[in-house]
Design a protein around this nucleic acid. Structure first.
Lengths: 220, 220, 220, 220
DNA sequence: AATGAATGAGGATTCATTCAT
DNA sequence: GATGAATGAATCCTCATTCAT
């Protein structure tokens, strides 16, 4: 029943240290997203990351060895973050068509609201790297349910993702016509072989709330 | 009108010199395409270009001052080359639907045949830089002719170009299912609002010949 | 003379603390020997020492301020250790020739048994740093006794120590011929001007026991 | 029979370029020897080499990728240089004993004359790396001729080279007694089993001239 | 026009040292 | 006394650019 008091503070120290380390890492990743969004994935130098994260050179290298490693970590964090946001948005919705519609609206809404973020995520490498399993599942289910009509899941995904990328970049470039989001959703659904009636039904859905603040803004 | 015979050999030398210069420049540009395709547009250094083109540093700078300038020249050459190829392919065809179908088939066929070329071309920056006026014109004409049904030309172009980019990258990544090209054309035409009957008609068209050799192969 | 009982537990704690401190210090020094043997005296970084000793950076600095200080401590420990071992080996032997022979055999035997140790010890800086007073005394006494014939003690020491260093490194490099130790002793004694008869006598001595375990093996 | 005049200047350019490159490389190596001699093999930084050689950082890296590579090149050059000097010294002498004596005198004379040079070469790694084939050949021939008596060539070399190293370091440390060189040669020859009479004969040889300037002095 | 050795500013990386827990 | 995350000065290394031949 007695506790070795020499050990207790050690465990505590260890735990506190790990927490600090983890917080620093997260700070770097969030700063990196802003830097990548602002400068692209090739231009930024270590200096940019450490200035944005307010850390020292040494600390950067304690956590990441190369810019590529940091980019990878940033993509992974962002991906988890996006997926979680969409799942929250979707709640218990289980109709594949409506799920996809909400998802598309989320991405486009976010691109409109936070173009720097969009400039970062709207690249084929990024979109292909994340495999978007939930999206693929919705495509399969919708096809089986007779809501969609396309030759193969592969083709359907390329249509959906490719159009989404260029659409998000249209927001980045500015100058999108009114009601652009609905128009994009309409042609994508057409492309997936959704009937006119179902398209109108899907577009009549209430819009997602988009409460979360842009991630690409400095949090201070 | 009289000829100074001291000038004649100079004119000759001048002409020969210009031809040689032009040949060197073209050699650099073609090598650059392979390098950009392999390494992206940011990573390659001067060293990569001169090694691929088998020229010296000095010669490189005789033709281009920066990597960006070389990239620009590469894009321009490629763009002119593509457009010319497609126009040759199209001949006098004036049906917007059939023109677009042939165009799509050309891009995808070329991607299949020459993935290195596709790896360079299939990026949003590139596709957005070329404004593809002929494509936009076909979209407008097809819409007016009642062949297409989409909310706006802007949206139609994003669907067409975005899907094309990801489809070409699918060829780059390898592992595309059989009949992938036809499947892509089908969903794109669906997305543009083409009727089932017209889609089948367009897909029944004879295929373009694709005689030209891959540009991304070293010519030696 | 009275005892303050408030002090007693402190004395105990103090004593225990000092023992613990001493054990940690010794652990660092033994680890350092292995590191120096493996990497030389200039290359290793703090990281190498703390990894080998399984301690933290902070602990290292609690005991040593610089790498040079640690090297010094390692040399001193090793030196005392060697001298003590040889004295044990020699017992009460007082014939200079036999003492030197036993000493040489000890060094070479240890080099054969523990090449890591030898890799560290067999360097001129180390050998010159230890002044080997007992060895020099034996050289003088043997010379006076007419056993040795050399021009000066300085020269005799350079011959003895230089040959020993390269011989030990031969063990480090592996691939020594059979009976290498005896051969080395023979040429060294020849060099010191010992008569053929006395050399044979010295080589006929019983061998030292070499009971002690290699110091360069991790003790855990 | 006609010459393509476009090629001639190219060949000339190429040749001139290569010569310049080679001269630069040699300049770096000679500077490196002075730096290594002055600072040891671990302390010097790139800055030291380029300052001593009066070249730019970039040029350094055009020729050597690491300090270790430069050290290697320096050792190789030095080794060739020493061997050549000794061969010049020896002329047509073919008596193994006299050859070895001249060689020892050369090394020790050079160490006395140029201690910085000696500080660099007098290290076991260096001496063991060069295999000194001519020296080993002399040892074998002398043994066969009955001039030497030692148990094995391996042992004889370790005696010779080990004693030489410590002797050279004695010059580096200063404070060597008068006639130290002859004393060293005497004990080494004793160690190799040369008879008293032959030793005296060898020591009576005329001394080498040592005309060449110290290599470790800046040549400007 | 072509060549390639040399340059050095700009940026990447290391590692001894500190210090809050 | 022990811990290890954080620090930043010191040093390494790259690569666009120049220029004599």
């Amino acid at each position: 029943m007695t506790t070795d008091h020499r050990n207790e503070p050690e465990n505590h120290r260890t735990r506190v240290g790990k927490q600090r380390r983890e917080r620093t890492r997260q700070k770097i990743v969030e700063a990196a997203l802003r830097v990548f969004a602002r400068m692209g994935t090739d231009s930024p130098m270590i200096e940019d990351f450490i200035a944005e994260a307010s850390i020292s050179r040494g600390t950067f290298y304690n956590h990441f060895n190369t810019t590529a490693e940091l980019l990878q970590a940033t993509v992974e964090w962002l991906s988890a973050d996006i997926m979680e946001s969409i799942e929250t948005e979707l709640g218990t919705q289980d109709n594949a068509l409506l799920r996809l519609t909400v998802g598309l609206r989320f991405w486009l809404g976010k691109a409109e609201q936070d173009p720097t973020w969009a400039a970062f995520v709207a690249r084929p490498e990024f979109i292909k790297e994340l495999q978007f399993e939930p999206v693929r599942r919705d495509l399969r289910q919708g096809q089986q349910a007779g809501l969609f009509h396309f030759p193969s899941e592969h083709v359907a995904f390329d249509l959906l993702a490719g159009t989404l990328i260029l659409a998000m970049r249209s927001y980045v470039d500015g100058q999108v016509p009114a009601d652009y989001t609905n128009a994009i959703i309409r042609v994508v659904l057409q492309g997936l072989g959704v009937s006119e009636a179902n398209i109108n039904l899907a577009l009549a859905q209430p819009q997602p709330s988009m409460r979360r603040p842009p991630v690409s803004m400095p949090s201070c």
